[in-house]
Amino acid sequence: MADVAEVAGVSHQTVSRVLNDHPNVREETRAAVLAAIEQLGYRRNSAARALVTRRSGVLGVVTTGSALFGPSSTLLGIELAAREHGYVVTVATVTSFEPSTMSATVEQFLEQRVEGIIVVAPQVDATRAILDLGAPVPIVMVSSSFVDARGAGVSPVRSVSVDQVAGGRLATEHLLGLGHRNVLHVAGPGDWFDARARLVGWRAALETVPGASGEMVQGDWTADFGYDLGLRLAREGAPSAVFAANDQIALGLLRAFWESGLVVPRDVSVVGFDDVAGADHFIPPLTTVRQDFEALGRHALAVTDRMVEGEDPDTSPLVPELVVRASTTAWG
């Protein structure tokens, strides 16, 4: 920094103000400092800065390494927002949430002096493991389970999410509004909070319409499951409408119905969830509930940042959006 100051013809303190984006710096002075930085190839010494500020600027992120659209897109949103806020992200991939695994992961983070931890793992066992940790830094869980833990002697745990119950209602209400009275719900795995919440939304919507009914089939998140189920429904008698817990299940259903001679949406209306990239190019283009995963990642980062600063953040869930395409139509 002293070299930068000498080349720019300013004080050491002025260089510091420019690096920290202080507003009280004239534009010509800022330009001179930035030019000197580029000329000298200056890079911040993170270790030295941490000693002075007692801030590492490092956040830990725990993920399962899932290739599912939601978790992977959320992680991308976190990384983009972290750079904008001046944080460095270190990612740990875990395959189980055993207490020993989570404890070792957190200990590894603490050795890197992380200021907070974000957990992208919306499963039941992940939440249990995190709440049992009692980590000394703030933790934010990306999960539709509501967590607001403020244990004595440990830092708080909060959760951020997209409102999955509202999303389930949107999908089901859309089908009911088209005249369907028998709406099958193909649910996701029971150990995922998101799947549970979408199921709650489906049930709540059915209860608002006299004569409406529907069955639930428990599945996984894969197109293979949707395909196998679609073939069975075509053989045994398909309902007029299906709400699939994610777009991959819906994709499998669409292919199975097509192979079986059922025309979507004339014979069966199908709604998915997530609005994955390419959902508008399914045949037919898929009506689905859109989640803004990049916004969710940014929300998780913002909440973590507030907690690191000792503030009580707003953890209100983000609002999903129904995207109507050609896979649904009026019935009766």
Results as ranks from 00 to 15, higher is better:
residue 5 A to E: 00
residue 6 E to N: 12
residue 8 A to D: 03
residue 9 G to T: 03
residue 10 V to F: 02
residue 10 V to E: 01
residue 11 S to D: 01
residue 14 T to R: 02
residue 17 R to P: 02
residue 18 V to F: 02
residue 19 L to N: 05
residue 24 N to H: 14
residue 24 N to F: 13
residue 33 V to L: 12
residue 35 A to I: 07
residue 40 L to S: 08
residue 48 A to G: 14
residue 48 A to Q: 11
residue 50 A to W: 03
residue 54 R to N: 14
residue 55 R to Y: 04
residue 56 S to P: 12
residue 59 L to R: 02
residue 61 V to D: 01
residue 61 V to A: 08
residue 62 V to F: 09
residue 66 S to P: 08
residue 68 L to A: 13
residue 69 F to H: 14
residue 74 T to W: 04
residue 76 L to C: 05
residue 81 A to E: 15
residue 82 A to T: 03
residue 82 A to D: 06
residue 89 V to S: 03
residue 90 T to E: 10
residue 91 V to W: 05
residue 98 E to M: 12
residue 98 E to T: 14
residue 99 P to R: 13
residue 100 S to I: 12
residue 103 S to Y: 04
residue 104 A to Y: 04
residue 106 V to F: 14
residue 106 V to L: 15
residue 110 L to E: 05
residue 110 L to W: 04
residue 113 R to W: 00
residue 115 E to I: 04
residue 121 A to E: 06
residue 121 A to Q: 00
residue 124 V to Q: 12
residue 131 L to N: 08
residue 133 L to M: 13
residue 135 A to Y: 08
residue 137 V to H: 08
residue 137 V to M: 11
residue 137 V to E: 06
residue 138 P to D: 06
residue 138 P to G: 07
residue 139 I to L: 13
residue 150 R to V: 07
residue 153 G to D: 10
residue 157 V to S: 10
residue 159 S to D: 09
residue 161 S to R: 12
residue 163 D to N: 15
residue 164 Q to K: 11
residue 164 Q to P: 01
residue 167 G to S: 09
residue 171 A to M: 08
residue 179 G to F: 06
residue 181 R to K: 13
residue 184 L to R: 05
residue 184 L to F: 06
residue 185 H to N: 09
residue 185 H to Q: 10
residue 192 W to D: 08
residue 192 W to R: 11
residue 193 F to M: 04
residue 195 A to Y: 01
residue 197 A to T: 00
residue 200 V to W: 04
residue 202 W to V: 07
residue 202 W to A: 07
residue 202 W to E: 08
residue 203 R to Q: 15
residue 210 P to F: 07
residue 211 G to P: 11
residue 219 G to I: 09
residue 222 T to W: 05
residue 222 T to K: 05
residue 224 D to H: 11
residue 227 Y to N: 03
residue 231 L to A: 05
residue 231 L to F: 00
residue 233 L to C: 00
residue 234 A to S: 08
residue 238 A to R: 05
residue 239 P to T: 10
residue 242 V to Y: 07
residue 243 F to N: 04
residue 244 A to S: 06
residue 247 D to C: 10
residue 250 A to H: 09
residue 251 L to H: 12
residue 251 L to Q: 13
residue 252 G to P: 06
residue 254 L to G: 07
residue 255 R to T: 14
residue 256 A to L: 11
residue 257 F to G: 04
residue 259 E to L: 11
residue 259 E to C: 09
residue 260 S to P: 07
residue 260 S to C: 11
residue 262 L to A: 09
residue 262 L to Y: 12
residue 265 P to I: 11
residue 267 D to T: 10
residue 270 V to C: 09
residue 271 V to I: 11
residue 273 F to Y: 15
residue 280 D to K: 01
residue 285 P to R: 02
residue 286 L to V: 00
residue 292 D to E: 13
residue 292 D to F: 00
residue 294 E to A: 09
residue 295 A to S: 07
residue 295 A to Y: 00
residue 301 L to C: 04
residue 305 D to M: 00
residue 308 V to H: 01
residue 308 V to Q: 01
residue 309 E to A: 15
residue 310 G to L: 13
residue 316 S to T: 15
residue 316 S to Q: 11
residue 316 S to C: 07
residue 323 V to L: 14
residue 325 R to I: 03
residue 325 R to S: 04
residue 328 T to D: 03
residue 328 T to K: 04
residue 329 T to D: 15
residue 331 W to G: 02
